[in-house]
């Protein structure tokens, strides 16, 4: 992924926060705490694009909707999508 060099100093922190989110999301899913999943999904939707991660916004948006309707399976799927994205993403600053 190509990200503007302007963001070089803040992107690692953003991604680290998403990894923390993953732990929280897994725990919330186990506890059926859909409120937390909805909130984190909403934040990702709002924040991802700003950092250049449109994919994170996209996942956040659908995760928020899934949590809103308390859809366990869909929420789990979107958490996995996030996990996959974070594991695979490679960043090149331009």
């Amino acid at each position: 992924m190509r990200i503007e060099r302007d963001f070089e100093s803040i992107v690692p922190g953003f991604l680290a926060n998403r990894k923390k989110d993953l732990h929280t999301l897994h725990r919330a899913l186990a506890e059926k705490d859909f409120r937390t999943i909805q909130l984190l999904g909403h934040r990702m939707k709002g924040d991802g694009g700003g950092y250049g991660f449109d994919r994170i916004s996209e996942i956040g948006g659908v995760m928020e909707l899934a949590a809103q309707r308390q859809d366990h399976a869909a929420s789990e799927q979107h958490i996995k999508q996030l996990e996959h994205f974070l594991a695979c993403v490679h960043i090149e600053y331009v």
């Binding site: 302007d6 963001f7 100093s9 803040i10 922190g13 953003f14 926060n17 934040r43 709002g46 924040d47 700003g50 950092y51």
Partner: peptide
């Protein structure tokens, strides 16, 4: 803004 990431973004 409650999202720390967005706070950081706007600050930057």
């Amino acid at each position: 803004e409650d999202s720390p990431d967005n706070q950081v973004l706007v600050s930057s």
